[in-house]
C-alpha cells in the first residue's frame, strides 16, 4: 500500500517531468509554429501561410547546400557503417575484455570537442597540402561516425552467441557463407540503426565541416548555410528550414527506433 506522503512525492516528480518536457519542446514547437506565420516574425500572428517554404525552395544556395549535405552524409555513412561494423565484430568476437586503451580510443571521437577535432584535421590536411572539399569533409565525418556505429553494433553483439558462427562452420558452411547467412542477418538491425545514427549526425555536423570544407561556397553544407543565415539575423526562412530539417531527423530517429524495437529487449 502506498502512503499518502509517497503519492505527493510521486506527483511532484511527475509534475517536474512534465516541466522538463515543456522546456525541451517549447523552443522546437515555437520554431515550427512560426514557420507557418505569414509575417514570419514572433511579434504577431499574421495568419497561416506556407509562403516561407516557397521562398526557401527558391534559394539556390540552400538547395546546393542540401545537395552537398546529402552527398557527405550518404558517403560518410556508408564508409563508417562498413568500417565500424567490421570493427565491432572484430572486437567483440575476440571473446575477452576490451583493454581500456582501446575503449578510450573508441570513446574519444564521441567526446572530443568538435572544435579540437576540426582544427586538428585542418592542420593535418594543410600539412599534407590536401585539397579541401566535400571529400575532406567526408573523410573527417567518418572519424566520429565510426565510433558511433561501432558503439551501436557492439551493443547488439553483446548478446550475440558467437558459437553460432562455429555451428555454421561445423555444419559445412564457409567463412563467407557464414557471414552472409548468419552474422549479417543477426546483427543487421544494429547495423541499420548505427547507419541511421551516423547519417543523422553527419547531416547535423557543423564545425568539422566548416573547417575542412575549404574556401569557396561550392562545398557548403546545410549546417554551414544555416549558420551563416543565423549570423545574418532572425529570418522567417530559417524557421521553415529548421522545421524541415527537424522533421527529417525525427523521421530517421523514428525509423531506427522501430528497427531496433523488440530486438533491444534484454
Amino acid at each position: 500500500m502506498k502512503t499518502p506522503q509517497k503519492t505527493i512525492g510521486m506527483r511532484l516528480l511527475g509534475g517536474h517531468l512534465w516541466v522538463v518536457y515543456t522546456f525541451l519542446y517549447i523552443p522546437i514547437l515555437v520554431l515550427m509554429g512560426l514557420s507557418f506565420n505569414d509575417i514570419g516574425m514572433p511579434t504577431a500572428w499574421g495568419g497561416f501561410s506556407t509562403k516561407w517554404y516557397g521562398v526557401l525552395l527558391e534559394n539556390d544556395a540552400v538547395l546546393n547546400a542540401a545537395k552537398n549535405t546529402l552527398i557527405v552524409a550518404t558517403v560518410s555513412t556508408f564508409l563508417a557503417t562498413l568500417v565500424g561494423t567490421m570493427l565491432a565484430i572484430g572486437i567483440e568476437s575476440r571473446g575477452r575484455k576490451t583493454s581500456s586503451a582501446l575503449e578510450a580510443l573508441l570513446f574519444a571521437p564521441m567526446i572530443i570537442p568538435d572544435i579540437v577535432l576540426a582544427i586538428a584535421l585542418l592542420s593535418f590536411f594543410t600539412l599534407l597540402d590536401f585539397t579541401l572539399g566535400l571529400h575532406s569533409i567526408i573523410l573527417s565525418h567518418v572519424v566520429f561516425n565510426i565510433a558511433f556505429v561501432s558503439a551501436v553494433v557492439r551493443t547488439r553483439l553483446k548478446n550475440f552467441d558467437f558459437s553460432i558462427l562455429e555451428a555454421s562452420i561445423d555444419l559445412g558452411a564457409s567463412e563467407f557463407t557464414t557471414f552472409r547467412r548468419v552474422t549479417l542477418p543477426v546483427i543487421f538491425p544494429g547495423v541499420l540503426a548505427g547507419g541511421l545514427l551516423a547519417f543523422t549526425l553527419s547531416v547535423d555536423e557543423f564545425i568539422i565541416a566548416f573547417f575542412t570544407a575549404g574556401a569557396g561556397s561550392s562545398s557548403t553544407t546545410l549546417p554551414m548555410q544555416i549558420y551563416s543565415m543565423i549570423r545574418f539575423g532572425v529570418t522567417p526562412e530559417i524557421n521553415a528550414m529548421a522545421t524541415i530539417v527537424m522533421l527529417v531527423s525525427f523521421t530517421l530517429v523514428f525509423i531506427s527506433q522501430r528497427i531496433n524495437k523488440g530486438s533491444s529487449v534484454s
Binding site: D161, S163, I164, E166, A167, S168, D170, S174, V182
Partner: peptide, 17 residues
C-alpha cells in the same frame, strides 16, 4: 571444421536465432 564428417552440438546449442 567444415570439411570434417564430424558434427558438434554446442553447449549453448548455438541455434541460429
Amino acid at each position: 571444421p567444415n570439411r570434417r564428417p564430424v558434427n558438434l552440438m554446442f553447449q549453448s546449442y548455438a541455434l541460429f536465432p
